[in-house]
Amino acid sequence: MSKGNNFIEYSIAGALSFLKESIFADEYATKEGFLQSLDPRIKVITFLLFISAILFTKSITISLCLYAICLALAYFSNVNMWFFLKRTWIFIPIFSLFIAIPAIFNIFTPGEVLFTLKLLGLKLIITQQGLFTAVLFVTRVIASVSFAVLLSITTKHFALLKVLRIFGIPQVFVMTLGMCYRYIYLFLEVVENTYLAIKSRVGTRLHYKKGQQIIAWNISSLWHRSYYLNEAVYNAMLSRGYTGEPALLNDFRVKSKDWVWLFFTTVFFVILLYLNRK
């Protein structure tokens, strides 16, 4: 026997934190704030403009400006800053920061010497080009992740999925997305309950091979349940009038405030593209 059964703990903790985070996200989406008051379609278009501007920029300053706009939008939308910073920095930007660090040295990015470090007898040279590359990379990642997270926490998830229709995505895809979203919660609950049941019976240390068997059994059991759930769901859809073509309600309303916001964001995006060409 070797090591503990912490994969069970991790899996329970993972499922729980996922559910908790979603509840938090839903809480922000129903709060009163600037972004929550916008029409979801206009919000998605403007956020895509912001994310595209971050993608196209070659300047650290513009990247940082866009990040500052994102933080300001979060503030005016009544999003708790500590929650937002924690949610956005963990995990992708921190991981990106770590992988960007070696790029600042001349081993990976040769160029003009900015300063030299001596570490354990090793001479490490930080180059201007390397520092620029690493800083631009990290600011681009954090700004993009922040906009993506801000969009998801200030919009009701179901509304966000319905918005996909304006991009000409077939209704069957939108319906699949909506249904998939609901099943994720159901499956997470199944997984969490199964692990709790395993934990209450295992109680002590478990060999990793046995652990792998438990995981495989769990996945196959989940597939088994999924498959048989399909028929019950289809019958439920038929009983509610499903005729083969999904129908979705359109209850979005565009206000003058939305048009003003769209206008300013578009102008801002065009200016950034112009600056980027210089």
């Binding site: 699949t176 994720i184 759930l229 399909n230």
Partner: peptide
């Protein structure tokens, strides 16, 4: 099997 796609995606 229409719901199967959504269930498969969630899986």
């Amino acid at each position: 099997q229409v719901p199967m796609l959504a269930i498969g995606a969630a899986f």
